[in-house]
Amino acid sequence: MQKKYLAGLKITEQGIQESLQLEDGHFLGHFYFQRGYFKQQLNGDLSDIQRDFTMAYSLFCAFDMPIHEKRLLEEYAEYVLFPI
């Protein structure tokens, strides 16, 4: 909301890397969602944006987070490659 997309992208990428290193998936869906959002705001590569939103959606499904699944599909369905 502060339009600091590059700073947010950097922090989000660090969060993804640390989560993967620690093998802790609690926030991975959120991090991928945020990364997709930041890339979208920065007019990033469409395939990267699709990959991030699809990964976020997949993780929300896997961790049984229906509220997050629904929100993502309501706002960013066009970026999800295989919605259920």
Rank of each mutant, 00 (worst) to 15 (best):
Y37P: 07
E18K: 11
A56K: 04
L28P: 00
G8C: 12
Q34L: 08
F82H: 12
E23N: 11
K70C: 13
S47W: 07
K39S: 01
K39N: 03
I11S: 07
Y37L: 12
I49K: 00
L22S: 11
E69T: 07
E69G: 02
S47D: 10
C61K: 09
K70Q: 14
L59W: 02
A7Q: 12
I11R: 03
F31L: 09
H68E: 15
Q40A: 11
S19L: 13
Y57G: 05
L42H: 02
D45Q: 05
N43H: 06
Q21P: 08
H68K: 14
F38G: 02
M1Q: 06
Q21Y: 13
N43T: 10
Q34I: 00
Y76H: 15
S19Q: 14
Q2R: 12
L28V: 04
E75L: 15
L6G: 04
D45N: 04
F31P: 00
A62Q: 11
Y32A: 00
D52P: 02
F38K: 13
N43M: 06
T12W: 09
L9V: 15
Q50G: 00
R71F: 04
K4M: 14
I84W: 12
I49Q: 09
D52Y: 03
A77P: 01
F63D: 06
G15Q: 10
K4G: 02
I11G: 01
H30S: 06
E18Q: 14
M1C: 04
L46W: 03
L81P: 08
K70N: 15
H26R: 14
S47C: 07
F27P: 00
K10Q: 13
F33M: 00
Y57W: 00
L6C: 03
T54I: 12
Q2H: 15
Y32V: 01
D52N: 10
Y79I: 09
Q50T: 08
Q14D: 13
T12A: 15
D52K: 01
E78G: 14
E75S: 13
E74N: 05
K10E: 15
F60W: 02
L22V: 11
H68R: 08
I67Y: 07
S58P: 03
L72N: 03
A7K: 11
Q41N: 01
M55T: 13
M1G: 10
L6E: 12
E13T: 15
Q21C: 09
D48P: 04
F82A: 03
E13G: 09
S19R: 05
L73S: 01
R51S: 01
Q40M: 07
K10Y: 15
G25K: 15
F60E: 03
E13D: 14
Q2K: 14
E74F: 10
P66N: 01
Y76T: 03
L6W: 10
D45L: 07
S19H: 11
L22W: 15
E23K: 06
A62H: 14
Q40E: 08
H26P: 00
N43I: 02
E23M: 12
